[in-house]
Write a protein that binds this DNA or RNA. Structure first.
Length: 276
DNA sequence: TCTTTATGGTGAG
DNA sequence: TCACCCTAAAGAT
């Protein structure tokens, strides 16, 4: 169940385990991919990168594997010969002398020559990756201000991988809360200062999610709320999944709305609509 | 055991 | 905007 930051951490784990080591064997659990087994056996993985929520595994024969976990896929890393106990279906197994990287449950998997990765229909549509170190908040602010995006609602933009790659449904709510933006505001109706703040929140929340396993609120507040007797919840988030609970900032009840059948949470007090 | 939900994405209308 | 696809786990019965 990954957004960009979780996928990036998976990529890090895979890379640490198998990059630079010859593959002693390669397994594909999907019949349509079986033909790549021989092509990749004996090769080494030379890099693992992410583009938004897509993960790319690069082999030293100039082939690459695209995989997308959607909601279900999961990579697991294990010591050679010690596969994890799971009922999930194995889709890809990359085995080296010391470690294996195993992809379970995912169905979006493709192998292609490395130079064609950019042509992949999913990759091609992606905007800048929020975890790309060269992406500055001013770049995001400029994008918010651009003809292409300025007149769409933030709720729509922040799930559009063509606007920014790697943001998903929980980060949408968290970022908009952090920047005090109403989900149905449009960039064109925000002040320059507000667009700047939103751009900075976008980078800040993404980076925090990458570094701290999705923890985006302050632990101190959590204990306080529990002591006050609120129902047991997972308090990783500031607003996401917190319908009817009091806002950490102002105490107002967090609202939940559905936007094209995806949940979105916000504080009506802290995130007032922009004048339009 | 059945039903619902999910941090995702596509394509039809 | 909706129906639908992928699969697993949680919730309801």
């Amino acid at each position: 169940m990954p957004e960009g930051p979780e996928v990036r951490r998976e990529a890090d784990r895979i890379a640490a385990a198998i990059v630079g080591k010859p593959l002693t064997s390669v397994e594909f659990g999907l019949p349509r991919l079986a033909r790549y087994t021989r092509l990749l056996s004996g090769q080494s993985v030379i890099g693992v990168e992410t583009r938004g929520k897509a993960l790319l595994t690069h082999f030293d024969n100039h082939y690459s594997m695209y995989s997308h976990n959607q909601l279900y896929g999961k990579w697991m890393v294990c010591l050679a010969g010690k596969p994890p106990q799971t009922n999930r279906s194995l889709r890809v197994g990359l085995h080296t002398q010391t470690h294996s990287a195993l992809l379970f449950s995912a169905s979006e998997i493709e192998v292609m020559p490395s130079e064609l990765v950019g042509e992949h229909p999913f990759i091609r549509k992606l905007g800048p990756d929020v975890l790309d170190r060269s992406l500055a908040w001013r770049d995001i602010a400029a994008r918010l201000d651009s003809e292409q995006f300025a007149r769409r609602s933030l709720a729509s933009l922040y799930l559009d991988q063509g606007f920014l790659a790697g943001i998903g449904n929980y980060m949408r709510s968290e970022i908009l809360f952090d920047a005090s933006c109403h989900p149905f505001s449009k960039p064109a109706n925000l002040s320059r200062r507000q667009r700047g703040a939103l751009a900075r929140s976008t980078l800040e929340i993404s980076l925090r999610a990458y570094q701290q396993a999705g923890v985006t609120n302050t632990p101190g507040r959590v204990r306080t709320l529990k002591r006050q007797g609120y129902p047991k919840r997972d308090y990783r988030f500031s607003v996401f999944d917190r319908e009817d609970l009091p806002c950490y900032r102002c105490g107002s009840r967090i609202l939940r709305v559905n936007v094209s059948s995806r949940r979105l949470y916000y504080c009506p007090q802290c995130q007032p609509p922009a004048a339009s």
